[in-house]
Design a binder for these strands. Structure first.
Lengths: 152, 152
DNA sequence: TCATGGGTCTAGAATAATTCTTATCTGAGA
DNA sequence: TCTCAGATAAGAATTATTCTAGACCCATGA
């Protein structure tokens, strides 16, 4: 498993140091959207003396080489997303968590045209949704209101 | 003109101090998306002693009261947008400038459904496009665009 | 008049995320 | 083995933002 990560890095012209492999191993496999501090914490399990600066360097290097993407969606900090295929993002307004939505889950029309009308050539776009987890289904046992549930 | 700003603030239950009126006068009329520092610079023309802390306080207060919106689109800093009607954003990858796109300029379908499929109730969404100004009619001139900008 | 108090303001300290600096280390080749 | 480019660690520096503490302003009531 390390083997294939090493190969992947080499293939992009990245020297596969222990630190880089550890970072790659963590970020490429997560489905979350970790920030640099979270990557640091996770990677320290394996490479205890790695520094924050190295984590930043490595993440930026990876982003530059197309191994992952930097996202500045929520305020304050940048997070990293290993999914490189186009997709959308849904932000939990309560927790700040970021979820992926498949590209095909919704449809955007006329994006390129709208930008062109402003004299721009679009290089990428995505829909950013914000919302909150819907109220938990009332459990049928106790305080569940009888009758059909109405959304909204 | 100040009169109507004062009225608008009062109407929202905001005490219209000189500082607040000056901030409102600037942010509500701009079509750009200024960050706090820019607001400070602009407002200092009129109220030279105003502090950065007051600018932040005022902008957050306004956002809370629904007078403007905070956007965390690009990395690093938050900007403020006086347009409160739903619309989309187009980011110039070269300059970082943010343009508005009318809601009707493009169409998004199934946004609410896509979020609901994840157990979320959407409260808002927007399309974020990134691109660059289309080359100005290359015109077959010899001079290739020199000096590429360094992205940042 | 003067004291009181609520709300606002400023300057500067504090914090958080990120980048920079510099000295040190490492490993692939000459 | 020696060398040197590239990588790393530690901590300083920078940038954006928030917090703190005290000063200020002004309406009110004794």
């Amino acid at each position: 498993m390390n083997r294939e990560i090493v190969e992947r890095l080499r293939h992009l012209g990245i020297l596969p140091s222990a630190q880089r492999v550890a970072v790659a191993k963590f970020v490429l496999q997560t489905t979350r959207h970790p920030c640099a501090e979270e990557v640091l914490a996770a990677v320290r399990e394996e490479v205890p003396m790695i520094s924050l600066a190295t984590v930043y360097n490595t993440l930026h290097l990876f982003a530059e080489k197309g191994l992952l993407r930097e996202l500045a969606l929520s305020e304050g900090k940048v997070v990293f997303d290993p999914r490189m295929d186009p997709h959308h993002h849904l932000i939990d307004e309560d927790t700040g968590a970021i979820l992926d939505l498949d590209w095909s889950a919704l449809r955007v029309e006329h994006a390129a045209e709208a930008a062109r009308a402003q004299g721009f050539e679009v290089s990428e776009y995505q829909v950013v949704l914000r919302g909150r987890r819907a109220a938990r289904r009332p459990a049928r046992s106790t305080a569940a209101p009888k009758g059909k549930r109405r959304a909204r």
